[in-house]
Write a protein that binds this DNA or RNA. Structure first.
Length: 195
DNA sequence: GGCCAGGTGTAAA
DNA sequence: TTTACACATGGC
């Protein structure tokens, strides 16, 4: 399996080229996107982020200070806007707290801290760890599960998230740039292919 | 017009 | 432990 995981990466890279993903101007913007994109098309997330930017609210301080109803209005296009407004504030507080000491924390501890926040599940936690904290953990999303089925004929239950994660992490060196690129390529494959 | 998107939390069996 | 359901908008 290890060789197949590596071979698949090379194939995607040859087909699509480097992706330079996640699309965000700052690490904190990754956190915002990670919350807003939950079960939501990225197109809609872009509208919400665009609204936040135009209102000069795309930073930690502004998000914590803004009123709930105003925040809900700004992120409305991303759906589940009431939930997401409340959870975005919770995630922001944890993000600020962890930012001070993340470099000295084991990844497992960082992950546990993120998972303790209501609204941050495994995929969201791992997206933040990889794309905002820049630490090597492999992100599993809907595209990745489809990709495993198609390329490796492997299919776990959705709740067995960590089985998918191990599949990739046991086959690859724990390299941040590699993990970012591989996941980005899988998403690109998914968007072009759909199956 | 219906289906579904880069999930998560909660309640009930 | 597993399953079912709520949460909501906008593009195709």
């Amino acid at each position: 399996m290890d060789k197949r995981v590596i071979a698949a990466y090379k194939k995607l890279l040859a087909q699509f080229g480097s992706q330079f993903w996640w699309p965000a101007d700052s690490d904190y913007e990754v956190v915002v996107g990670a919350i807003l994109t939950q079960n939501t098309n990225w197109r809609n997330v872009e509208k919400a982020i665009s609204n936040l930017r135009a209102a000069h609210k795309l930073n930690e301080k502004a998000i914590l200070e803004i009123g709930n109803s105003e925040l809900e209005t700004l992120i409305r296009p991303s759906g589940f806007y009431k939930q997401k407004a409340a959870r975005l504030k919770l995630a922001t507080r944890k993000w600020m707290e962890l930012s001070r000491r993340a470099d000295r924390m084991p990844i497992a501890d960082l992950r546990a801290e993120l998972l303790s926040v209501k609204g941050i599940g495994k995929e969201t936690a791992d997206s933040i760890i990889l794309y905002a904290f820049h630490k090597p953990i492999f992100v599993i999303d809907a595209y990745t599960r489809r990709f495993c089925k198609k390329f490796f004929d492997v299919e776990f239950r959705k709740q067995d998230y960590d089985e998918y994660r191990k599949l990739f992490e046991s086959a690859l060196p724990p390299d941040v740039a590699l993990f970012k690129e591989y996941h980005a390529l899988i998403v690109e494959w998914g968007k072009n292919n759909g199956n």
